[in-house]
Design a protein around this nucleic acid. Structure first.
Lengths: 197, 197
DNA sequence: CGCTCTCTGTACCGATCGGTACAATCTGCG
DNA sequence: CGCAGATTGTACCGATCGGTACAGAGAGCG
């Protein structure tokens, strides 16, 4: 079946989401090969066959997958969707779902704070600049001045990370939802104008 | 000299700030005893003599020291200073200095995101609730409604963590300063009323 | 079927992990 | 000085780290 797609390649694709979860929970150094092997159900032999570069290649593959996901599901719509308001709304919804309403940490944020920072600095920075710039583009199209859009975009990206840290620190995922609600107001061109009712 | 203060006790006090820095940079698991020993200049024998509980006790001592610092320098003034506006201003200034204008990570945030979370959950949560509640008290005294104060306090604590993550991710400490500037406006009872000039 | 190439479980590598034991040294004090 | 307790460097412990080697099992194909 599916010629051209080796078993190793399929195993690799199947393993990536699991590897991502382990890195998310334990950080780069904290994710041991034993743990990675257990959770993926792959022995050391298979793991190194699919990722000849070892743990570093696994982390790179995971970061690439994450970047691709955000690019297609969030950044591209922010840039290209005709209705910027719809794209902003979609971003908030997708973000809430992706981070499981605060129950899931951000792997890129975890890497940024601890080990992986030096090792994966370029990918880490690209994840955040990509989000910030795409968001700024949408905000500009939605009517904010260029400077205001840039400022709010940086604030939003920063706030999301803060919400995830706080949700985990307090063991209260709802803190993430409250942060998203505040964000929704602040990304609305009418925000604060008419508080409604 | 100084009777009652053993050499081990003095070594302990002197080591704590250094240990804190190492934990900050490498996380709990990433901070190896070898690294801890090198940076403090203490051999394994001395380290275990000062901290019989090993690495866990070192981390606990560091977390206690951090909590004490924030309690006296930030939380208590927020609660007790007669002029809440002055306390808020002091908080922002002290916070900027403590995190070296974005050049330093938050150890509690690092622990919350990775390893130490289960191990130090109580202390981690207390650090954030302490900050949030003291800040809410000051905001209430400054004129915000109780609900509004609570919401802004949570937002501020969250935003600070987000700013630190972003500053490290982009390797751009200035991102932390920009976040603090936004915060200053949002914690001002007159914020947004008269944008000035 | 039988050959070949892909895949994988297992044993093993040196290094390092956190922690312990202890003898040697230092220090304060009578 | 000389003793007792505090202090510390060093050797060592078993466990685990990331990574390698490789023999044998498995799969695809003529």
């Amino acid at each position: 079946m599916r010629p051209g797609v080796s078993k190793a390649e399929r195993a690799r694709e199947a393993a990536i989401p699991v590897l991502a979860e382990v890195f998310r929970e334990h950080g780069y150094e904290g994710a041991s090969l034993a743990l990675l092997g257990d959770r993926t159900g792959l022995g050391k032999g298979s793991l190194y066959h699919a990722f000849p570069g070892g743990k570093a290649e696994m982390a790179e593959a995971v970061l690439d997958a994450i970047e691709a996901w955000f690019e297609t599901r969030i950044y591209a719509p922010l840039r290209d969707e005709p209705d910027p308001r719809a794209a902003l709304d979609r971003m908030l919804t997708e973000t809430d779902a992706y981070f499981r309403s605060g129950g899931r940490a951000c792997l890129v944020g975890v890497f940024a704070l601890t080990d992986g920072r030096d090792r994966f600095a370029v990918r880490i920075a690209r994840y955040f600049t990509g989000w910030r710039d795409a968001l700024a583009a949408a905000l500009t199209r939605a009517g904010f001045s260029s400077a205001d859009a840039a400022d709010r975009a940086e604030e939003a990206v920063s706030a999301i990370q803060g919400g995830l840290v706080l949700a985990r620190a307090l063991d209260d995922p709802a803190a993430f939802g409250r942060m998203l609600a505040r964000l929704r107001l602040r990304l609305d061109p009418n925000g604060g104008a008419t508080p409604g009712r």
